[in-house]
């Protein structure tokens, strides 16, 4: 366990060093760490604070300000349904209700995914889908389960 922690610590140091330990790169660093680890563990934030020479309070402020960052791992795939006006106009609310009923994992609301001419839009693990009705949503979930 100790070795695992140490190696992840050195990885975090490595990521910070890749940005010359610059405090202005904090958001990039948080993205990189979260992309690798799946979430931002308390230990990781302590390590980043130390490397960038900024306070843990400052980092906490940043992590909790931005919607992208999470302090706990996701319990399933990263599914975001666009809930902004353009997708509302073509049934995003119905889709969100359907998804909440059919999906075990928590679904995030996005505002907006920039696919406003082909809504409702959904992003699954970083891949964008357009014209997603309930049927297509089920298909996408099924495909995802198979891969």
């Amino acid at each position: 366990m100790v070795t695992v922690l140490q190696s992840s610590h050195s990885r975090i140091r490595q990521i910070c060093a890749g940005y010359d330990n610059r405090p202005d790169a904090l958001i990039e660093i948080l993205h990189d760490v979260q992309d690798e680890a799946g979430f931002l563990a308390k230990e990781a934030l302590v390590e980043i604070a130390d490397a960038l020479n900024i306070s843990r309070a400052d980092i906490h402020g940043v992590v909790t300000f931005y919607h992208d960052f999470r302090l706990v791992p996701l319990d399933g795939p990263d599914i975001r349904i666009c809930r902004a006006e353009a997708c509302q106009a073509v049934g995003a609310e119905c889709l969100a209700t359907h998804a909440a009923k059919t999906c075990d994992t928590k679904i995030t609301a996005a505002y907006c995914l920039g696919n406003c001419a082909l809504g409702p839009a959904v992003m699954m693990d970083g891949k964008l889908y357009g014209r997603v009705d309930a049927e297509r949503f089920n298909q996408l979930l099924k495909q995802r389960g198979e891969t």
Binding site: A84, E85, A86, C87, Y111, C112, G114, N115, C116, A117
Partner: peptide
């Protein structure tokens, strides 16, 4: 940071 719903020209 093109966040407005209904806009995608920057993208």
């Amino acid at each position: 940071d093109e966040g407005d719903s209904g806009t995608f020209a920057d993208r």
